[in-house]
Nucleic acid binder design. Structure first.
Lengths: 211, 211
DNA sequence: GTGGTTCCTGACCGTATGGTCAAATTCAGA
DNA sequence: TCTGAATTTGACCATACGGTCAGGAACCAC
């Protein structure tokens, strides 16, 4: 007799459950904020009893922390593109593309992160002070090198990075506003491409990396 | 006998109380979000008993709505600068200055607005669909005219506006992150000027309005 | 003063929330 | 098949929340 479709191990099942809960939590936290989200609603979205959530994540805060950490990891990976690049037009352009794509594919995560930072980063302050600070310093060094090599205008690297974050994440965090101004419809594929192109054009030209 | 300092009329006293409550509410809503904010905490910050808040604002939502509307009004006023301008460098430059100044002076309001929009604008959806939509269309027309007159590069006006909002409001909404990356200290006067200059330089040069 | 209106506030209420727990069920390995 | 560990879940609890209300205080026109 062929083995019935039951090949998932204990650990696999645990990971699946955690992923299901984390996905539901990300959605609910993004829509309602930490304070407005309820474990009951997250449980409903996940299709599980509330008590089951507390088995995998002892507290609401521990669940929230895991959601925020996951988003941070996704963003850090987008940084690889930056580093692998040869010059500002390629590196920053690819970074904008990557972050715009994340805003499109993971808008909930971006919102949770924004909410967390806006509220003073009570949960991930240590990440800001360590990982993010190092990352920022490293990227600023790269930008300064490009400037020294005459491959882009002299601009403050920190403020350039802020602008990159702000513009790309805006399409996720303020997606509802953009959708409303777009006549109530989400941006189409073409409109997303136009958005990417606009952002890249203005910023890359703005730092003198397109000539 | 000189009149004792008691010259406030009934209406004035009412307005003062409302302003006190609104100010406290703006702070608390910004720090905790709508769901996380409590009437008790707002009352404590305002130095009033909780029941007194409900005398001036019957529900938490009505108080919140008033806070959001106030912010929106402040932003709309910044638009006047845009209209009074002669060309893109002057108009957009002044608009950036004005919005950066608002981010500096009213960061709480900006955060409340961001939070509201991120959560799907449950309270001010009608504002988005009417006032903001009209405002955006009007400003896009102005930008298109500047483009037609050859005073700036052809860029999508909507995406340019999004970029202006994103970059300027970022300094309020993500102020905590910026402060952390700045070594834990708020931006100094000089740093704010540098921020304004960087944003203006990159965007104005990026749209070809500086040549 | 006096009557009436506005303003203020402590005490209270129904509800919803985060979290607990013990009993029941499932599952892997011997 | 048996056993112990992992998992699932309904019922439950203490707390905190938004909101109410009645009674008192302050104020103003006459």
């Amino acid at each position: 007799m062929a083995p019935t479709r039951r090949s998932s191990s204990k650990k696999e099942r645990r990971q699946e459950s955690e992923k299901l809960i984390l996905s539901a939590a990300e959605k609910v936290f993004a829509e309602a904020g930490f304070g407005g989200a309820t474990m009951q609603l997250i449980a409903d979205v996940a299709g599980l009893p509330k008590a089951n959530l507390h088995y995998y994540f002892p507290t609401k805060e521990s669940l929230y922390r895991q959601v925020v950490q996951n988003i941070f990891q996704i963003w850090l990976q987008a940084a690889d593109i930056f580093d692998a690049a040869d010059g500002p037009a390629e590196g920053i352009g690819a970074y904008i593309d990557a972050k715009m794509e994340i805003s499109r594919r993971h808008p909930e995560g971006s919102k949770v992160w924004a909410s967390e930072v806006m509220h003073g980063a009570p949960v991930i302050q240590d990440y800001l002070e360590t990982t993010l600070m190092e990352w920022t310093a490293g990227r600023a060094d790269v930008i300064r090198r490009w400037i020294d090599e005459g491959r882009m205008d002299p601009v403050d690297p920190d403020h350039l990075l802020y602008m990159l974050w702000a513009t790309t994440q805006h399409y996720a965090d303020f997606g509802h506003q953009i959708e409303t101004l777009n006549g109530g419809a989400p941006l189409s594929d073409d409109q997303w491409e136009a958005a990417k192109a606009s952002v890249k054009q203005i910023i890359l030209r703005g730092i003198g990396a397109l000539d």
